[in-house]
Amino acid sequence: MTAPFTRRVALTLAAAVLTATAAEADFPERTITMVIPFAAGGSTDLVGRVVAERMGRELGQQIVVQNVGGGGGSLGAAQVAEADPDGYTILMGTVATHALNPLILKQKPYDPVADFAPVSLLVVVPNVLAVNPELPVNTVQELIDLAKTDPLAYASSGNGTPLHLSGELFKSMAGIEMTHIPYRGSGPALTDVLGNQVPVIFDNLPSASGHINSGKLRALGVTTAERAPSFPDVPTIAETLPGYETYTWNALFAPAGTPPETIELLNAAAKVAMADPAVIDRMGTFSATIVASSPEELGAHVQAEMTKWEPVVQEADVSLD
């Protein structure tokens, strides 16, 4: 990626020269576009819209949401990576756009570290390992034992998604084999597990929670290090497999080269938004835990996630061109 690099250098220089004036200018003087790299209606879209609305009020300028779906989030992310680094185009990034895709994609449309300026890690969302109630297992250990004697299959929302890799990490840490059955999204995967066409599923907690509550799905464990506040009775997978931890996260990014003052303003607005009781309430219904980190923390988080997933991706031999 040499072209963006030289451009970045040029921009940094330009930014340095202009810093004095740029800092004086009132940053949001027109509408800000938040690119959501998935279709409308998904969990990232929902988080994005709630946050965009509240942040817009804080900044005194509307933040419009633009859904640029496709390529597992990489199309939208690439669009923001190439956008003008002025803070008027920001990205609602996820574990997929900033950790998994860069590891999985053979052709890399962007560099998750060099092409972006981190703004804030907003929320983390647990995933859940659940089974159809007809499968005679009640705990993670029983599932592992069963999988050692019986060949099992598990459903996920698609190849290379965080849920697929959560399953692969589980397999490798438990030392078992399970056939992965990918679907086009969480909905169809859930349908087949509810109908017992496939016995096991890794899903986002928000989309599975209704079925867990109604008893149509049996939750064996959540994937986070701590139990989820919305499901205190469901153990963590880590209680059986120490060290197991995966989750989905949403974070704001701006293009690399965005002036630090602008990043600060966006970060401050994000923090205010995430402290609003109405937003907290909404995030609670997604079982999402609010983080609202600093830009530096998000930068470190991206690095940590890439380090964590790299061996899993290699072991599972997942790759997309």
């Binding site: 279709a39 209606g41 998904g42 929902l46 819209r49 709630v50 209704g210 309430d281 909404r282």
Partner: peptide, 22 residues
Amino acid sequence: NPVMALMIGAMIIQGIVPGPNV
């Protein structure tokens, strides 16, 4: 279908967890 997916999104954003219990 995709429209229904949007409906689910609309429910979730309103704090309703879609599922058999609705």
